Computed example of a mutant assay.
Amino acid sequence: MNDVISAILLGIIEGLTEFLPVSSTGHLILAGDLLGFEGDWATTFKIVIQLGAVMAVLVLYWKRYIGILKDLIAFDFSAKKLNAVHMILAMIPALIVYLIFKDFIKQVLFGSATVLISLIAGGILMIVAARSKRKVTAENTDDITYKQALGIGLFQCLALWPGFSRSGATISGGLLLGTSQKAAADFTFIISVPVMLGATALDLYDSRDMLTSDALILFLIGFIAAFVVAMIAVVTFLNLIKRLRLEWFAVYRFVLAALFFIFVM
């Protein structure tokens, strides 16, 4: 029963934090430590339930994905609108880095101490990006160039460090590369589906020995909790992340890291 309650709580935390640049993975690791929900099995669980929240993005942007799929079938890769090439360029860097360093990431970086450091490091990057004076060349996702998509993909590699935040890294990268915060946020959400699908598939394959019937039940509980909460939160948070300056999220990250360090570590 305790595992079920932990699975529900972690699913709720995932759904609330996935769309904000505060690191859902970092929150899950810290919450997991507090709940005693740790170990290799718990690490896999925390990665898998992110898929529940990401599915909310698929529901929200389904028309955009259908359009991208139609263009792909028609071999229409016009650089003047968001297409599959943009998404592939944004995904490749993190995929390569993950495949090379996945064991190191799981064994070394999935811990409270490293998460606290990355919360601070990610917050500093967000402040730098928010205060940058780069000329905006992409007001919306259709204005994003292939070069900017690849650059955002390179910044996404930072998110492989739990606590850094995928949306925080990619939105910061977008701002530094000349996109508006709205364009960077939309692009971040759109590429989250294939990125998380791929990451989850790889992790499930690596952890296939842990997929017992009991584990699958808890995975499903966490998945559903994350999906339901994310669907409720996504509309509010989607507008919030497009309008609120990144400094405010950075301050939250600093406060969270300080409180956890003082009272828990």
Rank of each mutant, 00 (worst) to 15 (best):
V255Q: 08
F19K: 03
I262N: 05
A159M: 06
R134L: 09
M87I: 14
A169H: 01
L20V: 13
I241D: 03
R166C: 05
V234A: 09
G174V: 11
T25E: 12
D186Q: 03
A90E: 07
A169V: 02
D142H: 11
Q107I: 11
S167V: 14
K70Y: 09
K147V: 15
S207T: 08
V234D: 05
L119K: 00
T179I: 06
V48K: 03
L175Q: 01
I96A: 11
L119E: 04
V85E: 02
T43K: 15
A169N: 10
G15H: 07
A169T: 02
I96R: 00
A113H: 15
G32W: 14
R166V: 01
S112D: 15
G168R: 00
R131G: 07
M196V: 15
F19C: 02
I5H: 06
F261T: 04
A250G: 01
G32E: 13
C157P: 02
S132V: 05
I105P: 03
G222Q: 08
S118R: 06
L60D: 08
F187I: 02
A53F: 13
V255S: 06
V115L: 13
T200K: 01
M265Q: 15
A121Q: 04
W62H: 12
K106E: 14
C157L: 08
D71K: 10
K182P: 09
G15E: 12
L158G: 01
S112R: 11
I241S: 02
V4S: 13
K63V: 15
Y61W: 05
I96F: 13
I241W: 04
S118F: 15
Q148I: 12
T137A: 14
G39W: 05
K70W: 09
I47Y: 00
E14H: 02
K133N: 15
L158Q: 03
L95F: 14
F110S: 02
A84Y: 01
Y205M: 12
G26P: 01
W161F: 14
G11A: 12
F19I: 04
I73A: 15
R245S: 11
K133Q: 11
G151Y: 10
G26F: 10
I120P: 03
D103C: 02
L28E: 07
G198I: 05
K106Q: 07
L218A: 11
A215N: 13
E38R: 09
I224N: 05
I68P: 08
L176A: 08
F104H: 05
Q156K: 04
G198F: 07
I127E: 00
F223C: 13
A183W: 02
A94V: 11
K46W: 10
G32P: 07
Q156F: 15
V264F: 12
L95W: 09
G151P: 09
A250I: 10
G122H: 00
Y252G: 09
L244V: 15
A84H: 00
